Computed example of a mutant assay.
Amino acid sequence: MKEEKTTPLRQRMIEDMKIRGLCEKTQQGHIRCVKHFASFLGRSPDTATPDDLRSYQLQMTKDGVSATTFNVRIISLRFFFGVTCGREEMKRYMQFHRQPRKLPVVLSVEEVAKLLASVPGPGLKYRAALGISYGAGLRASEVCNLKVRDIDSQRMLIHVEQGKGSKDRQAMLSPSLLEVLRQYWRESRPEGWLFPGKPKISPLSSRQWNRAFMAAKE
């Protein structure tokens, strides 16, 4: 497979993102969005004009791009032009799409219990992982990155390191959830990662968590 060449412009953008402490996933997303814009433009993206930006946004609208995707691309382009290119004035020509507000789906206690009872095996790992999500309000990525030491049974707390916004926080640990975790620990005896993946030196991935969730829903 032919390796893609990193241009000086892309390298500069990568360096700008690293300087600002953006995580690897965010960096990859920004690069992907700017690459998409360059493909539309047919030339180097730093040569774009306000009319080019207008045409790009119109094309995304015609293509039926979701508000989420539209806004993610705009955020990336705002960084690219404002930081990497030093063309702050280009931000004036980029608009965000309003996203319709939807009420979250809240499951009843009975529905949550039924969902957890349907979590596939073998063992209790996925049941415990989904139980933390619903019982303590943790995101999938936060659950996957938990370590055994993060469960504080003395103070009935769960320590979440580098959660949303790269901030540490604490979540309440209920007695019923603690009992599920103790059953899981007695069964699997995890060390390091609370929910190890494959290989065990790595944590469970969010994709694996989602697969277990979708299987339980069916």
Rank of each mutant, 00 (worst) to 15 (best):
K147D: 13
D46E: 15
H97D: 08
A136W: 03
R211C: 12
E89V: 06
P122Y: 05
G137M: 05
P100E: 15
V160D: 03
M90R: 10
T61A: 15
I74P: 02
P104I: 03
F40Y: 11
G21K: 08
T47R: 13
L138E: 02
V119S: 11
R155E: 14
T84C: 07
E187V: 09
P8T: 07
Q95C: 10
L77I: 00
L58R: 10
P100F: 03
G192L: 00
F96W: 10
P122H: 04
K200L: 13
G42H: 04
V106L: 09
K167R: 09
R73W: 00
P196Q: 10
Y134E: 08
G163E: 02
R78L: 07
R20W: 03
D63I: 11
G123I: 07
G192M: 01
L138I: 06
M1L: 14
S118N: 14
Q28C: 09
V148Y: 00
R12L: 12
T6Y: 01
I74K: 07
L22F: 15
V143L: 06
P122G: 06
K217E: 10
S153Y: 08
P190W: 02
R10A: 13
F81K: 10
V109Y: 12
S176Y: 04
Y184E: 11
M156W: 00
F79T: 01
L53R: 02
L181A: 08
G197R: 05
L157S: 12
R73D: 01
I201D: 13
G163A: 04
M17I: 09
W193K: 07
I158H: 04
L116T: 02
Q154I: 13
G86I: 03
I19W: 12
E111G: 09
D16M: 07
V83D: 03
A113G: 05
P120D: 02
K2M: 14
L130A: 09
T6N: 08
Y56F: 11
F80V: 12
T26I: 10
Q170G: 06
K147P: 01
L115N: 06
E15I: 11
H30C: 12
F37T: 11
M94C: 03
R169N: 01
L130V: 05
T47I: 08
L116C: 01
N71L: 05
M17N: 07
P196Y: 04
K102W: 04
Y56L: 08
R139H: 05
Q170C: 14
M214W: 08
T69Q: 05
P196L: 08
P45M: 12
R127I: 07
L194D: 01
Q27E: 14
W209Q: 09
Q99K: 15
L103V: 04
K114I: 10
K147F: 10
A212S: 13
D63R: 15
F80H: 05
A67W: 03
I75R: 15
N145C: 05
S205W: 08
P199I: 06
T68G: 07
H36V: 12
S174N: 01
G192R: 05
G82S: 06
I201T: 15
Q183E: 15
W185K: 12
V109D: 12
S133W: 01
R139C: 06
K164F: 00
